[in-house]
């Protein structure tokens, strides 16, 4: 018997240096991610001159709340905001209504051509949106669906990623529980909605949030499938704010105020759903 067997496998505690290095790295990452947000929010309160100044101003002399009012009016938040809310909310419902049963079928049922069909769904995630833009535009235009809520909602109703993640969650549900439900006389639909669905709730909540977010932030499709501003949404309006000027100077602080307002609901939603989202990532085996 050699001495190697006597050596404990537990490592000695990290010396102080490592602790400090760890903190420095974390602090650096924190700043890297938070700084842009900070700068956007703080810039919303600046005066036009401060917003333009170089080196940048980190704390305005005076907080100008009026910038938000200007942004609201300038970007016509009432109109575009309404469009954004209607479309994003509808997408959450239509997307989940289609994705959940689809995910259940792929995750928990056996049928012919299951694998190739699923491969098609997966491959969709690898196709850049720009490739399908033209055919879609022509399709919607022939249907007479340009400039409608319908096209905006329909487009985001299908989401391969949502199906994929919910399917993964469904696959992790213990099979015995589903069998118990079938023995309890439950139909396949009941098994899905009353038994399996509640067990993957964190994943579904996260997917709902992400569906909302995708639509809320979407600029590309919104602009591609519209020829007038009837159903255009906030990202388009904020973009248009860039044109706002004060005499000769561009009013960055107004654009920033608009961007802050655009982001606020998502930030709030994230803070509330934080725990669910973390659970979802643990659950779907990503973390």
């Amino acid at each position: 018997m050699t001495d190697i067997y006597k050596k404990s496998l537990l490592k000695k505690k990290n010396p102080l240096v490592w602790k400090i290095a760890e903190c420095v790295i974390l602090a650096f990452l924190f700043i890297l991610f938070v700084l842009p947000f900070y700068y956007m929010i703080i810039s919303s309160f600046k005066s036009t001159v401060e917003a333009m100044r170089n080196p940048p101003v980190w704390w305005p002399a005076q907080f100008l709340w009026g910038n938000f009012a200007d942004a609201w009016k300038g970007a016509n938040f009432t109109k575009y905001g309404w469009n954004s809310i209607v479309i994003s909310t509808c997408v959450v419902f239509t997307c989940l209504a289609c994705s959940v049963p689809c995910a259940f079928a792929f995750g928990r049922m056996e049928f012919k051509l299951k694998k190739p069909l699923f491969a098609i769904i997966l491959s969709d995630m690898m196709i850049p949106v720009q490739c399908v833009f033209l055919p879609l535009f022509i399709l919607f235009s022939k249907l007479g669906w340009l400039n409608t809520y319908g096209s905006m909602i329909l487009l985001f109703t299908y989401s391969g990623a949502t199906i994929f993640f919910i399917r993964n969650a469904f696959m992790q549900v213990n099979n015995e529980v589903l069998e118990a439900a079938r023995l309890d006389g439950a139909s396949e639909l009941t098994v899905m909605y009353r038994v399996t669905f509640p067990m993957v709730k964190p994943v579904v909540v996260t997917m709902a949030l992400m569906a909302f977010l995708r639509r809320w932030n979407d600029y590309f499709w919104n602009l591609s499938l519209t020829t007038n501003d009837r159903v255009r949404t906030l990202p388009y309006a904020i973009q248009a704010l860039n044109a706002a000027t004060d005499g000769a100077l561009p009013r960055w602080e107004v654009t920033m105020a608009g961007a802050t307002m655009l982001m606020a609901p998502m930030l709030i939603a994230y803070i509330f759903a934080n725990k669910q989202i973390k659970n979802a990532f643990i659950y779907s085996g990503i973390k």
């Binding site: 213990n174 015995e176 529980v177 069998e179 118990a180 439900a181 079938r182 023995l183 038994v195």
Partner: peptide
């Protein structure tokens, strides 16, 4: 299974 008028108890309980 639901129409066979039987009940089953599983090893891992399988309760909801």
């Amino acid at each position: 299974p639901g129409e066979r008028n039987i009940a089953m108890v599983f090893q891992n309980y399988a309760i909801y």
